[in-house]
Design a protein around this nucleic acid. Sequence first.
RNA 1: GCGGGCGUAGCUCAGUUGGUUAGAGCGCCAGAUUGUGGAUCUGGAGGUCGCCGGUUCAAGACCGGUCGCUCGCCCCA
Length: 413
Amino acid sequence: MSALQPVRGTHDILPEDMRRHRRVADGARGAAALYGFQEMATPIFEFTDVFKRTLGDTSDIVTKEMYSFERGGDFLTLRPENTAGVARAVISGGLLQQAPLKYFYYGPMFRYERPQKGRLRQFHQIGIETIGVAEPLADIEVIAAGARVLDTLGILARTTLEINTLGDSESRTSYRQKLVDYLKGHEGALSEDSRKRLDRNPLRVLDSKDEGDRKIVANAPLFDDSLTPAARDFYAKVSDGLTRLGIAFSRNQRLVRGLDYYCHTAFEFTTTELGAQSAVMAGGRYDGLIEQMGGPATPGVGWAAGVERLSMMLQDPLPAPRPFAIVPIGPEAETMALTLAEELRRSGITVELGYRGNMSRRMKAANKVNARAAILIGENEISRNAATVRDLDTGEQAEVPLQALKDRLVQFR
RNA sequence: GCGGGCGUAGCUCAGUUGGUUAGAGCGCCAGAUUGUGGAUCUGGAGGUCGCCGGUUCAAGACCGGUCGCUCGCCCCA
């Protein structure tokens, strides 16, 4: 393993990718702000227990995907997701006094997985959380904000919204029992993976891609039959709300969540454009989470989206800003160019200063940085206290007095 | 953790049934052009053929291992 290679599953984000990345993060932040979500950040590592206790000991994330280490006697873990961190922050900061809380976040996450298309070991997520609202209105708002984010990025039409209800804990326990009873009857026919799931997380079997499993699942008891009236009512309110907002969705009864703390609403915006990965934004309600962490019983609902996945769906990155290039001709002009560049930059104009070479060379350099125009300064210009401004798109050029230079440059678009 | 595909210049790739000094396009550098970029022409730099071992008179090519990338499974954003 060469030290000169990036760590497997990590990537350098070079300027063009970075602009894409920025567009996702900035667009999402802006759209979320329209719904009252404010940005906050938590540390990228926490005590390991923060994740262990909330994600459940059997989840894949905890059993095989965490980057954990020990330092000074503390067991720490790079965050694999951010909901647990936000919940911890809310508890340790005593913020529940001010509930409801509505947060937006953006930042890197870490999972030790085999990298593939749309899956990295260090990746970035944006997300929102509404904490302290038990009403289905919060679920509707959270999903609507998600749709707004995707729409802002111009990719909503290329995604599908699927939603499901996982019910309250009463519905869940009773269904879990019915499902396990049913599946035990077909245990011999289940795939090896699904037999493992049967013990750990039976709901996952519903989501199996195995042909044989699917046949068995097709006749499994329906979750809806186990829903309590309250849970049924909750789901109805969410789906009515979405319908009223004109947000298209389909019910997917096989949609379950990998993480243990979800209840009631579960949803995913999916796409077919990312290879084996389909989810670009996923979330749901997690009413038990904060209590499970040792805080007061507090409901919550939110989603997270993968910035790299969203970036891949973006048509174009934000365009790079086009600078003006100063091209000095001769040593006297060269000293002048430095101060002129600084002066222009102070008034908010983007300027590139060629570093070396004769005029031809610097014009080439100006072209390479995609300069909008070149500002030529030579003996002639200096003697007249002027500069020659050459439009590099049209090739037109004219001499401009130095006092009028700023105003002239601002006219370029 | 499991399975498939692929590793030749900065990038995209060619390289014949194993045969001498490993090529192209793009990009890069310089010149044609000492006050004018893009286009064109000329020249130049750039490679331990991923790495280690094996087979062979001879390996970029064949075999084994290894590392990396990639696609998929599991799981997930």
